[in-house]
Design a protein around this nucleic acid. Structure first.
Length: 436
RNA sequence: GCCCGGGUGGUGUAGUGGCCUAUCAUUGAGCCCUGUCGAGGCUCGGACUCGGGUUCAAAUCCCGACCUGGGCGCCA
């Protein structure tokens, strides 16, 4: 059977009536009515009904079609017949059915969604879970989101870069790293491309972006954390935090715009049957001071200089209702590379992009002074010697610059209203899961 | 790391000490049925996480282990 002649089920319709075609895929369902037998074939495009009438088709073919186990892979040659009684307006009258690979029974999951399955069960049999329609659409959307992000940056003169994922030292502090064995030394999986993208600012690559994996060894076990995630990172020279905040909100709006008309949104089962609204730019900005004030009105007290708790973020999300920025954070709870505010010594240029449900991104203008950066590293209790490879870039002409990092999975789960971040990763890595 | 839940056929579930030879759906095997689209009807097969304990009696109560869901903390 030639793959060149293979057609997708969604390319066909009643308009192809009479054409001889070849389709291939999985046996999604079988309905045996005695004298008439329906085999529902599934490929990447969708479903097609293959109809066999006893008497009209070869006896052997009829019997073999009934015997093929569900989820087996088959290639079918036959004629398209426009048929109002068929679910998609046409059916295939087969002349040949070739079983390319028979599926074992009983299946680990139901691909027809008649019976549910828990996430853990689904992830154990992820290859089969991904055959389910709603799950497939999540990853088609994910792919489209990544494409939209690349288009956005490429159109704006950004250069895509790749920085190392195996690194020598604790990068930013704050989070736990995965140690790995690197020949005779210890190394780590990178928690973020932060230091490397900043170093590129000193190279004159003044608008860079990277989409890549980040690794966090935190032993958290929640619906919004992963130990291996994907981040979109940018760094822009001669820019302030306001400049990169504009880029960020425009990016989010662009991504929403690109996905808003995707028909598969309605198949997700997450309440997006009517699609979604593209968030309006600019997003509201509230300062950290305003944020803790708002939270205190709801009864929860946050001391100035403390990070916002989960319940505080929830209160803010309720109040703000849509995407918003929290700006002017205390320097003490932001990383060493956040540039201090020009107006106040105890706050910095850092910002967080919040969705009502969770934090999506954080960024800042960066410290570009070697002396200040070195002092900041030391004052955070880190050793400046470990950062020599990074600090060197600041001694020979580092322009002012700003940037941010955005969690792809968080963007997706918030956009698609998915409850668990694992849903938007093909093979998620969490506290317990290392396979598949 | 802390707190609170849960582990019953392949999958999803009912069952809070004896009515359990364990419910229902779906899946699987088989039979009937010539227009199904969650097809329908009939027959059959298939499970109490593991190890201790309490009791005349444990799926059910207790202890431990393992697995697992959620919340908090940390973090993006």
């Amino acid at each position: 059977m030639s793959m060149r002649r293979r057609r997708y089920t969604d390319e066909l319709s009643a308009a192809n009536d009479g054409e001889r075609v070849c389709i291939a895929g999985w046996v999604h369902e079988k309905r045996d009515l005695g004298g008439v037998f329906f085999l529902i074939l599934r490929d990447f495009g969708g479903l097609a009904q293959v109809t066999l009438h006893r008497g009209d088709v070869d006896k052997e073919l009829f019997a073999r079609a009934k015997r093929v186990p569900r989820e087996s892979v088959v290639a079918i040659e036959g004629r398209v017949k426009g048929e109002e009684k068929a679910p998609s307006g046409y059916e295939i009258i087969p002349e040949r059915i070739e079983v390319l690979n028979e599926s074992s029974q009983i299946l680990p999951l139901d691909t027809t969604d008649k019976v549910g399955a828990e996430l853990d069960t689904r992830l154990d049999a992820r290859f089969m879970d991904l055959r389910r329609e709603r799950v497939k659409h999540i990853f088609i959307i994910r792919s489209r989101v990544l494409r939209a992000i690349r288009d956005f940056f490429n159109e704006r003169g950004f250069m895509e870069v790749n920085t190392p994922k195996i690194v020598s030292a604790a990068t930013e502090g704050g989070t736990a790293l995965f140690p790995i064995s690197y020949f005779e030394r210890e190394a780590f999986l990178n928690q973020s491309p932060q230091l490397y993208k900043q170093m590129l600012m000193a190279s004159g690559f003044d608008r860079v972006y990277e989409i890549g994996p980040i690794f966090r060894a935190e032993e958290h076990d929640t619906t919004k954390h992963l130990n291996e995630a994907t981040s979109v990172d940018i760094e822009v020279a001669f820019a302030t935090e306001e400049d990169v905040m504009s880029i960020l909100e425009e990016l989010v709006a662009h991504v929403y715009t690109q996905i808003a008309d995707y028909p598969g949104l309605s198949r997700l089962g997450t309440g997006l049957e009517e699609g979604f609204d593209v968030p309006k730019v600019p997003f509201p900005r509230i300062t950290y001071d305003e944020a803790i004030e708002l939270v205190s009105e709801s009864g929860e007290q946050i001391e100035w200089g403390e990070d916002l708790s989960a319940s505080a973020e929830h209160v803010l999300g309720e109040t703000m209702g849509e995407h918003y920025f929290i700006i002017e954070w205390p320097s003490a709870i932001k990383p060493f590379y956040a540039q201090p505010s020009p107006h106040r010594s105890d706050i910095c240029t850092a910002f967080d992009l919040m969705h009502p449900r969770l934090e999506l991104a954080s960024g800042s203008q960066r410290v570009h002074s070697y002396e200040l950066l070195r002092a900041n590293i030391e004052s955070k209790g880190l050793s400046a010697d470990d950062f020599e490879f990074y600090l060197d870039a600041f001694r020979y002409g580092m322009p002012p610059h700003a940037g941010w990092g955005l969690g792809v999975e968080r963007l997706l789960m918030s956009m698609l209203r998915v409850d668990n971040i694992r849903e938007v990763v093909l093979f998620p890595r969490d506290r317990r899961r290392l396979v598949p």
